[in-house]
Design a protein around this nucleic acid. Structure first.
Lengths: 236, 236
DNA sequence: TCGCCTCTGTACGGCAGCGCGCAGACAGAA
DNA sequence: TTCTGTCTGCGCGCTGCCGTACAGAGGCGA
């Protein structure tokens, strides 16, 4: 019961819903533990569950082959996985893999579809979130194209910090390179640079944010832009 | 009346709707002529009209400043501009400028919102289109990141040819560079290369597709991928 | 304590695209 | 015809990232 209350407060989408809606979703869903690098969806695959992360977070990627992968979206307690159901499509558009281990509320897709029909408030909230996600996609395009690795890395760390609700999290350079669509060496260089600026520290995958505001300076505007879009669109 | 019939058949989203829905939208809308480089939307700006292009087409871009612009979506007679209304958001997420002059059905946003509420078929069709558009955004991210200018140019030309319904259209290297987010010189080199392969010919902005299938060979998979997504998702 | 494995740091040649500048080609106006 | 503005083609040095390879450093189990 405590766990449920915890989750309720943790996912901001759920928290913004009327109490009745919240309760129905909580009753029907399961609190599950997501493990790092677990794959929750593949493009073209049938959607069986939707996930509302509380302290876990999930990457949306476009990996075609092993080499050319790119993270295009990041889902934490401000969002949900499986948003395609809102559009009446039952197929996942992207890869989804767990980036940060933690808990999430998992809800059966069929039940969720019925709830969407039942509750206009639920649907409207999720539509707004989808709008935010689209903006994030567009922003990622331009960011990936024009900004140097160091700035993109800084942005990624900030976004992740927000979703991990912690100054520390675990991720190796190789994995980061995979997300940013660059070489591992590129990440190492950028990370070293950030380290020399006393903004972060790390060792063997354990990253600590040392100077958040300094990191914001180094990061591209995209970070602030995303946050503003979310705030303005969601009204909470 | 002939013009109306023409438009009806020309926009595939409209054409796929039940006759009653079509008629209501046609009655309420105006057939307007869109001029090249006309700006139809700015990010953050109130949406006053939605547009269903017939033989015109519209670019969605993320230009922050003059330099760093990138086209993230292209709308022709297979789509519509103003899709944010489907999500219950009244604000445009991106820049929209007319890429190819021609006609479009323009509908008042307030009326369109009411129609969405009235007609579940309309809403569902547009939701599916939105799903396609999201896929296009993600695809553009990865394309922009990993593919060389020549392949991206070929993709762009193919996408534009589809929407222009013609082998010829007008666009300068400078403008193309703006869309692809590269230097004008980069476009010139890529275009010269395509010309040497006898795939296109052009002079002072007048581009002719000479060998469509050859162009598909040179273009990245993204082109085919987008088309497949559209076909599979829209079922028409 | 040793060996293994993972993670990080560095080096090197190569290349696509950048910024900038300039020259030639073409078209339409005067 | 001449002039002017637009569009195209090319050169040059630079940089950010690529692919690859290898060495050291830290954690962990045998």
């Amino acid at each position: 019961m405590l766990a449920i209350t915890h989750d309720l407060n943790s996912n901001r989408l759920l928290a913004s819903l009327p109490p009745k809606n919240q309760q129905r979703l909580l009753d029907a869903g399961d609190l599950v533990e997501l493990a790092f690098s677990e794959i929750l969806a593949e493009p073209g695959e049938w959607i069986r569950y939707v996930y509302f992360p509380s302290d876990s977070f999930i990457s949306l990627t476009t990996s075609r082959d092993e080499r050319t992968c790119l993270e295009v979206g990041l889902i934490g307690n401000e969002g949900m996985l499986g948003i395609a159901l809102v559009l009446g499509v039952d197929v996942s558009p992207l890869h989804a893999l767990v980036q940060g281990a933690g808990t999430a509320l998992r809800i059966d897709a069929a039940f969720f579809r019925r709830e969407l029909k039942r509750s206009p408030e639920l649907e409207q909230t999720l539509k707004r979130y989808l709008y935010v996600l689209m903006q994030q996609l567009a922003q990622t395009s331009v960011c990936t194209r024009f900004h140097v690795v160091e700035a993109r890395l800084a942005r990624w760390l900030l976004m992740t910090q927000d979703r991990a609700h912690s100054d520390k999290f675990h991720i190796t350079h190789a994995f980061l390179a995979y997300m940013l669509g660059v070489r591992r060496v590129g990440v190492t260089k950028a990370a070293t640079s950030l380290h020399n600026l006393a903004l972060i520290s790390y060792s063997r995958g354990d990253i600590t944010i040392e100077d958040r505001s300094g990191l914001i300076e180094v990061a591209c505007d995209c970070y602030t832009h995303d946050k503003n879009t979310y705030r303005e669109t969601m009204h909470f």
